[in-house]
């Protein structure tokens, strides 16, 4: 989903802009170097294409429909860098001209969907598709999983950003000033929809279009394929490096958010009301009359962390940073496992 204005604090938005900027800069340089003067029409036209397909309602199993962002497709045919630029431009236009997503949240939406989404999708595609021929079904699986992983990585990041808001930004009475739900609620609420509807929509669009291209325009799939004639794609190492930078940015970004607003001093966590708030959420002790389902969900998600954390990590702030990093790590782990499976069956 596109984050509207008002869900994230201005300082979170500023950090998101600051985190997105270096990626835009590097992407622009890389794309210019590789495509020369072609980059401008290619990115613009592909961006317009992804804007339009974001309006498509895709029929899903079970009689529902879902939207795709095209983040998987962009990663497959353009690669991560051109892809993140194209999706970013589409997101900017949605926010500014069509009110879909907030203007202050453009940085965050671009960072989550366009940048992290593209990098994760590219990585998954490269790992799963490997060096399989452009016409192989393994390449289709790679494209589909790329879309699925890309959109879910974006959703998880969005959920983490939401979930940090009540901890970092609340007034003296403990009233959350922005998105009101802590991680324990925000993450499952966000992920349930994305692991199912949105993820499937992205899977079908990426795999389906890749299959369509195999039949009609295989050249488009060869662009990013390793060893393709036209331009060399980035080495896997570089993609891993980009993701590693992202993981390191996570705690730095959180620190920046907290200190910029001056609300994240350690003594904050010794204040009675703050602690009560954190405790209520992390231990699943929502108010007595909370809807039972949501309360249970929050327990499922957060229960292990406080219980098994070593004493040194009892500091709640550290715990949150850790869980944010763990989330990113989880995505990478799942990616690796996915890539390991098909390659082993192939070797046998």
């Amino acid at each position: 989903m596109h984050i509207p204005d008002g869900y994230l604090s201005p300082s979170t938005c500023a950090v998101a802009y600051a985190s997105a900027a270096p990626f835009w800069y590097v992407a622009m340089r890389k794309v210019k170097r590789r495509l020369h003067s072609r980059f401008l029409p290619l990115i613009a036209v592909f961006s317009a294409f992804s804007f339009v397909i974001m309006m498509f309602n895709l029929p899903l199993p079970g009689g529902t429909t879902g939207h795709a962002t095209g983040v998987g497709l962009a990663a497959v045919v353009l690669g991560p860098w051109a892809g993140m630029l194209a999706i970013s431009v589409a997101l900017v236009i949605q926010a500014v001209f069509f009110g879909d997503g907030g203007i202050t949240a453009i940085g965050a939406n671009c960072f989550n969907i366009a940048i992290v989404g593209s990098l994760v999708a590219s990585l998954v595609y490269r790992l799963v598709a490997g060096t399989s021929p452009t016409g192989s079904s393994r390449r289709l699986l790679g494209a589909g999983l790329a879309g699925y992983a890309g959109i879910n990585a974006a959703a998880l990041l969005t959920a983490i950003e939401f979930g940090l808001q009540p901890l970092l930004f609340h007034d003296a009475t403990g009233t959350p000033l922005y998105a009101p739900y802590a991680l324990g609620i925000a993450v499952p609420a966000m992920m349930i929809g994305h692991l199912t509807f949105a993820g499937f929509a992205e899977f079908f669009v990426s795999a389906g279009v890749a299959s369509y291209l195999q039949r009609t325009d295989p050249g488009l799939l060869a662009r990013e394929a390793p060893g393709a004639e036209r331009g060399k794609p980035d080495s896997l190492k570089k993609l891993w490096a980009a993701l590693a930078i992202l993981m390191l940015l996570t705690p730095l970004g959180l620190l920046a958010v907290g200190t910029a607003w001056g609300e994240w001093a350690p003594e904050d966590f010794s204040k009675a009301d703050t602690r009560r708030e954190i405790a209520a959420v992390t231990h699943g002790q929502a108010p007595a009359a909370a809807p039972a389902g949501l309360a249970r969900l929050s327990t499922v998600w957060t229960a292990p962390i406080p219980d098994y954390a070593p004493p040194i990590l009892k500091n709640a702030a550290f715990g949150y940073v850790l869980s944010a990093m763990a989330g990113t790590g989880l995505i990478i782990l799942v990616t690796l496992m996915l890539s390991a499976l098909p390659s082993r069956t192939r070797d046998v």
Binding site: V205, V209, Y212, T216
Partner: peptide, 14 residues
């Protein structure tokens, strides 16, 4: 059908 439409659109885009 939806996916084919997206595919045609993408070929045209390139």
């Amino acid at each position: 059908m939806a996916v084919a439409t997206v595919g045609v659109l993408m070929s045209k885009a390139f």
